[in-house]
């Protein structure tokens, strides 16, 4: 398969302002290469992500979603990333049950200084979703 006809997934990244969003910025400043499939949505805290946001992203055709919050114990709002993690667990369960599969969703933890980590996560998610193929509801 050549790179021209390769499936290019659409991946939504709900990113915390205090860490992942800044890390993505840093990755850019460091001129790190990472796939352009990622669409960043800035959140004031990963804890503000709602299951509904995630499900809506899939309803609108996203092939994958990830939520990126601060390192464990390092949440700017103390508990936000832990809450997000629990919601992701529930959302994964729903995705499994509706037939999309839990692997299309993931939670990552990183600090604002981890530009390379953000690039790595972006690559990892893109590879993963590429292997899973397009969302079955794309274009339905």
């Amino acid at each position: 398969m050549t790179s021209e006809n390769q499936f290019e997934p659409e991946i939504i990244a709900f990113s915390c302002h205090y860490c992942a969003y800044a890390a993505a910025d840093l990755a850019g400043i460091m001129r790190l290469q990472y796939p352009t499939n990622i669409k960043l949505i800035k959140l004031p805290c990963s804890g503000t992500v709602d299951i509904l946001h995630i499900l809506n992203a899939f309803e609108q055709g996203a092939d994958g979603v990830f939520v990126a919050g601060c390192l464990r114990g390092g949440c700017h709002f103390v508990e936000g990333n832990n809450r997000a993690e629990r919601r992701i667990e529930r959302a994964k369960d729903i995705l499994d049950k509706v037939g999309l599969g839990k692997d299309r969703l993931e939670m990552f933890f990183m600090s604002s200084s981890e530009g390379p980590r953000f690039a790595e996560v972006a690559r990892e998610m893109t590879d993963r979703i590429r292997k899973l193929g397009p969302s079955p509801i794309r274009g339905v």
Binding site: D50, I51, L52, L55, N56, F58, E59, I94, L95, K97, V98, G99, L100, P136, I137, V140
Partner: peptide, 16 residues
């Protein structure tokens, strides 16, 4: 909120 999540889940299941 739960109505939203459930309805969205059901729509996803329907579409799949």
């Amino acid at each position: 909120r739960e109505v939203g999540i459930l309805a969205s889940s059901l729509r996803l299941a329907d579409k799949v």
